[in-house]
Nucleic acid binder design. Structure first.
Lengths: 230, 230
DNA sequence: TCATAAATGATAGTAAAACTATTACATAAA
DNA sequence: TTTATGTAATAGTTTTACTATCATTTATGA
């Protein structure tokens, strides 16, 4: 099977971790450790120990641990965009295209053999638990100027453009899609930890399908497309 | 004018800050400092200095700074629930009731003279910038068991119940309302910091009204109530 | 009004986290 | 062979979050 590499914004790292063995080890173990410890308990010291390297070496790849989180989340959104491009190839009907995109956003994530170094399931849990921390900081604006959030914004635009294709008169395509992208993860978090906030908590077997259904109804009703017209 | 006090869950504090002069000062200055410094740069040391007290004294009111944030956010949601109760008194039409609730959620907040100690405008900014940090932690489940998130959950239920009244067949009232409550703040954050994610960034004059419109359309379309039937 | 306890203040200290600095050495490209 | 690069080893600094102790002030109520 062919192996792929996602092109990442240069400001996300000091040295590109995809280019060296140590870099890939840092990312691979970083994902595992953030997933198990949580972002606040995760430290470069612990990571260095785990991979038999040193703190100083890790700092040569990532400016600090916050940047490392931003890198991982950016990777996730780049990956999602690639999957949506892939999944909507040769589909011309925009309603169909939107449905595929939403399904890919909402579905439970598992290993993608194109990227053998990344544990997508663990990364997905990190997205659910930690991704808001990438931008809920005092340096959002500087970070944004550096393009650190390009992945998310680009995906939002891509899906919003499909919405516009379906209904050019809908006023809030970007607001709708950014809301939906956030809700997709938030609802899963709520179902797990604050169950009274969502009906998905009762749906243990088919939670991800029902989440998809919830979001699909939300989007298509918002832009005024009923089942009949689809 | 009569002064009110919101009844807060006992687990939110060590000693009730509403009961003493020092306690009220801690909350009042705490809000101002978190608003200006951001939660991460905010420390009990700085707060103690500001109010001419000591770290030790503040720890006698709040177990740690995270609990203090949770307290402030809980206060906000309790306040919102009270305002919605107040604003929907004697309104029987559930569609009307839901509209009022959404309007109160989405509108820009300013001073409420019933609570002279609290700077609601500053607290509102804290909610926008920091509220997710209350539950995006490893101890969500313990904190939830202690009832720390009761305010938000109770408000969500209240509005979801109105939704059920309007359309008992809609499957996801809680998911819809928790999504909307989050989106209400998130969209304002995006408009300020990641403008390409929402149309609200272009609407400088009437951003809060347009946010309300966006959410209203979202909700009423989702539950299948068009303008005509309202 | 005096005794007692509760509330607050003053001061110091600890452990860990986040990052920085410096030196050294092996390897591989120029 | 020189030079740059990657990695390691070690140690240090600053800040944060929190704890401990004891003194002093203030409130309460017998």
């Amino acid at each position: 099977m062919a192996q792929l590499q996602l092109q990442m914004n240069e400001n996300l790292f000091v040295r590109d971790p995809q280019e060296t063995v140590l870099g890939r080890k840092i990312v691979e173990s970083g994902i595992r450790m953030i997933d198990t410890l949580g972002f606040e308990k995760f430290t470069f010291r612990k990571l260095a120990e785990e991979i038999d390297s040193t703190e100083a070496s890790i700092y040569r790849y990532f400016e600090n641990k916050h940047r490392m989180l931003v890198y991982l989340i950016a990777w996730y959104w780049n990956w999602m965009e690639y999957r949506i491009d892939f999944g909507t190839q040769n589909i011309n009907n925009p309603v169909e295209k939107l449905k595929i995109a939403l399904k890919l956003v909402a579905e439970q994530k598992s290993k993608d053999p194109f990227f053998p170094d990344i544990d997508e399931a663990a990364l997905y849990r990190i997205v659910i638990n930690e991704s808001d921390k990438t931008y809920l900081t005092r340096q959002v604006d500087e970070d944004n100027k550096e393009g650190l959030f390009r992945g998310f914004k680009s995906l939002c635009k891509k899906i919003a453009d499909i919405v516009k294709e379906i209904n050019p008169n809908y006023t809030y395509p970007h607001a709708l899609i950014s809301t939906v992208l956030q809700a997709a993860h938030q609802q899963i978090f709520f179902a797990m930890h604050l169950p009274s906030l969502t009906e998905l908590s009762q749906m243990k077997e088919n939670r991800f399908d029902k989440n998809n259904e919830f979001l699909e109804i939300l989007v298509f009703n918002a832009i005024g497309v009923t089942e009949a017209s689809a």
